[in-house]
Simulated assay, not measured.
Amino acid sequence: MSVIEYVKGDATAPGGKGVRIVAHLCNDLGGWGKGFVLAVSRRWPEPEAAYRRWHRERAANDFGLGAAQFVRVSSCLWVANLVGQRGIRTGRSTGVPVRYEAVDAALGLLADKAVELGASVHMPRIGCGLAGGSWEKVEPLVLRRLVERGIPVTVYDFGG
């Protein structure tokens, strides 16, 4: 069985050849302004604009927890906006924003798109930054949804 490749680096500059998808988590409020999304926006304006439009027009589309949006940013590179967190972290009493069931569902959609495109997937440790999640809970979802389907996955730890 394949495994996740862990590297030090920037997930917005994915290595390798062929079609690649950079995946990250978004919230269900339409907010975009902290965490990994800032690096995404510095590199490409399209994913943020598409996400904000998707949220604004949510009454007529599939926007919501567990949904996924795929934005092409170059001939061989896509960004996957995965809605995997309820709101944003505002205090300890509200709990963490990550919703593992939503992450699982969105990863399933990501897997389908990766298979369709023949793409590899590149991501930070999704759900484990501002979303407050645990990689020990997210990693098995990535393994089951992506790796077990034969999709190459690289997880980037920033730095180095």
Rank of each mutant, 00 (worst) to 15 (best):
residue 113 K to C: 00
residue 87 G to V: 03
residue 127 G to C: 09
residue 107 L to Q: 01
residue 122 H to K: 07
residue 106 A to M: 03
residue 94 T to P: 07
residue 88 I to K: 13
residue 117 L to R: 04
residue 124 P to A: 11
residue 130 L to W: 08
residue 120 S to M: 10
residue 124 P to V: 13
residue 113 K to I: 03
residue 127 G to N: 02
residue 102 A to C: 08
residue 111 A to D: 02
residue 116 E to W: 05
residue 101 E to I: 08
residue 105 A to Q: 13
residue 98 V to L: 11
residue 108 G to K: 03
residue 117 L to M: 08
residue 82 L to F: 04
residue 121 V to W: 07
residue 90 T to W: 10
residue 132 G to H: 00
residue 134 S to L: 12
residue 133 G to P: 05
residue 121 V to L: 06
residue 126 I to K: 01
residue 112 D to M: 12
residue 111 A to F: 00
residue 108 G to Y: 07
residue 82 L to G: 02
residue 91 G to V: 01
residue 89 R to V: 07
residue 95 G to W: 01
residue 90 T to K: 11
residue 128 C to G: 03
residue 98 V to D: 03
residue 107 L to T: 07
residue 88 I to R: 11
residue 130 L to R: 15
residue 97 P to A: 00
residue 123 M to V: 09
residue 111 A to V: 09
residue 96 V to S: 11
residue 121 V to I: 05
residue 85 Q to I: 09
residue 107 L to M: 09
residue 116 E to K: 08
residue 85 Q to Y: 03
residue 110 L to T: 04
residue 95 G to I: 15
residue 95 G to Q: 04
residue 126 I to L: 12
residue 84 G to R: 08
residue 97 P to L: 09
residue 89 R to W: 14
residue 99 R to W: 05
residue 98 V to F: 00
residue 114 A to D: 12
residue 104 D to H: 10
residue 82 L to M: 04
residue 125 R to T: 10
residue 115 V to L: 12
residue 132 G to F: 00
residue 90 T to Y: 12
residue 108 G to M: 06
residue 118 G to N: 03
residue 91 G to E: 03
residue 100 Y to L: 15
residue 84 G to N: 03
residue 126 I to D: 01
residue 95 G to P: 15
residue 114 A to W: 02
residue 131 A to E: 15
residue 116 E to M: 04
residue 88 I to F: 03
residue 107 L to H: 00
residue 132 G to W: 01
residue 91 G to F: 02
residue 96 V to K: 15
residue 101 E to K: 09
residue 120 S to A: 15
residue 115 V to F: 10
residue 128 C to E: 04
residue 100 Y to M: 02
residue 104 D to Y: 08
residue 124 P to I: 14
